[in-house]
Amino acid sequence: MNKQQNDFILVTGAAGFIGSFLSKRLLETGKKVVGIDNLNDYYDVNLKLDRLQELKKHKNFVFQEVDIADKDILMSIFQNYNFSVVVHLAAQAGVRYSIENPDAYISSNLIGFYNILETCRRYPVKHLIYASSSSVYGNNQKTPFKETDKVDSPVSLYAATKKSNELLAHAYSHLYKIPATGLRFFTVYGPMGRPDMAYFGFADKYFSGKSISIYNNGDFENDLYRDFTYIDDIIEGIIQLLRKQPIENKGQAPHRVLNIGNNQPIKLMKFITTLEECFSQSLNKVIEFDKSFEPIKPGDVPTTYASTDELHQITGFKPTTPIEEGLQKFTDWYVKYYQKV
């Protein structure tokens, strides 16, 4: 293949939740997108294929089934295309699964990320945006979480790999002047989301006639708090950042890490009752989940709460979608997609 003359944006993890929504938004605004994904079976592959089907309707979308752990294939893709920007979202996700299958995290999140950095070094890009995670904050007691907080005590392998990504990106940015932005995502949710996320699992359990497990010991006074961020807000934040790459300043690497969250954490039980109300609206009947309460899981953290001041200062944007609106869009999609009416 001859090297393409026009600028392309590379989106890794293009069949994933955030990756597919971002690719769709880019394509709708006339951008040319190369999407790669290994289509692994961590969750229902059919959902990934359906996301891809939407993207393939666009003539400016190119998809290649690629595992980012394969350095040679990645190099060949970078050689063939003139990428202006790389948005690296491919990763093995999930805190709890990292306890069951650590190998997947080392392969994708460490080796795969190193390969992305190497390709960006060999074939320079204007901006590398990559996914980090709010999990890097661990059991941080100070809220809201700020990018300047110390994050040297991860409580899961997943969090450790994401913190490692930030360190590696900083080193490569310093050595090779790669403009790079890491995004610490805070509990992203919405239609066509990840089935391994709690809200999606609650829906699956309800329609299977099973009780949902709530990992807060039934302690409503000291409940878990989560900063739930609607998918459209995540995508808008990324879009705003594409052409706002960091610059080298007085010897400082052109690298930064930003929170992207809703800045409005809510109690887990409030989230669950809102989800019940939204499903009641979607189904036009009152529903209530059968609940069982269990101890907090290893690797889970009691609170996630994002300070988004830095993101707002750079872009003028702050996520604003209220949980009631976001969950209603999810339940409407879920009921239609899985034909529950």
Score class of each variant (00 low, 15 high):
Ile231Val: 15
Lys31Pro: 06
Gln4Met: 13
His174Asn: 15
Leu74Thr: 01
Ile9Met: 04
Lys285Cys: 13
Ile73Gly: 01
Ile247Tyr: 09
His174Gln: 14
Asn216Lys: 10
Leu128Tyr: 00
Asn6Phe: 09
Lys285Thr: 11
Val151Leu: 04
Leu128Glu: 06
Asn140Gln: 14
Thr304Cys: 08
Ser20Tyr: 06
Pro179Asp: 00
Tyr130Ala: 01
Asn101Phe: 08
Gln240Asn: 14
Thr229Trp: 03
Ser307Arg: 03
Ile260Asn: 01
Asp41Leu: 09
Ile296Arg: 14
Gly16Ile: 05
Ile266Thr: 13
Lys59Cys: 07
Glu277Ala: 15
Val335Arg: 01
Val301Asn: 03
Leu55His: 02
Lys210Ser: 12
Ser135Glu: 12
Gly218Phe: 10
Leu128Gln: 02
Leu26Gly: 03
Ser134Ala: 15
Asp50His: 12
Asn2Tyr: 11
Asn222Arg: 14
Ser84Asn: 12
Ser76Leu: 13
Ile296Pro: 01
Asn139Tyr: 10
Asn82Val: 01
Gly316Ile: 00
Gly112Asp: 01
Asp290Ile: 11
Asn109Arg: 09
Ser20Asp: 03
Lys146Phe: 07
Leu39Trp: 06
Lys177Glu: 10
Ile323Lys: 00
Pro246Phe: 01
Gly316Cys: 04
Ile99Pro: 00
Asp7Tyr: 12
Val45His: 02
Asn249Ala: 09
Asp223Asn: 15
Tyr130Asp: 02
Lys285Pro: 03
Cys278Met: 13
Asp309Met: 06
Asp227Lys: 00
Ala169Glu: 06
Leu10Ala: 03
Glu294Thr: 10
Ser156Arg: 05
Tyr215Asp: 12
His174Gly: 10
Tyr199Trp: 12
Lys205Glu: 12
Leu275Glu: 00
Glu221Ala: 12
Leu183Val: 09
Tyr199Asn: 05
Asp152Phe: 07
Arg25Gly: 02
Ser133Glu: 05
Glu294Phe: 14
Glu221Thr: 11
Tyr305Leu: 05
Val34Arg: 03
Asn6Trp: 03
Ala253Cys: 09
Cys120Ala: 10
Thr320Met: 08
Thr119Asp: 03
Ile77Pro: 01
Gly35Thr: 06
Leu311His: 05
Ser134Arg: 05
Asp50Trp: 09
Ser84Lys: 15
Leu110Ser: 05
Tyr105Arg: 00
Ser211Thr: 13
Glu100Pro: 03
Thr321Ser: 07
Ser164Cys: 13
Asn82Ala: 05
Leu327Asn: 04
Pro179Met: 03
Gly237Thr: 07
Leu258Pro: 03
Gly326Ala: 06
Ile212Tyr: 08
Tyr105Cys: 01
Cys120Met: 07
Thr119Val: 15
Phe78Ile: 08
Ile323Arg: 02
Ile247Lys: 15
Ser280Asn: 09
Lys297Val: 13
Leu49Met: 13
Asn82Lys: 15
Ala203Trp: 03
Asn80Ser: 15
Phe271Asn: 00
Lys3His: 14
Leu242Gly: 02
Asp70Tyr: 07
Trp333Met: 07
Val151Asp: 03
Tyr189Val: 07
Ile247Leu: 12
Ala180Tyr: 00
Lys48Pro: 02
Pro102Tyr: 08
Pro144His: 04
Ile314Trp: 04
Gln245Phe: 10
Val34Gln: 01
Asp67Tyr: 07
Met269Glu: 02
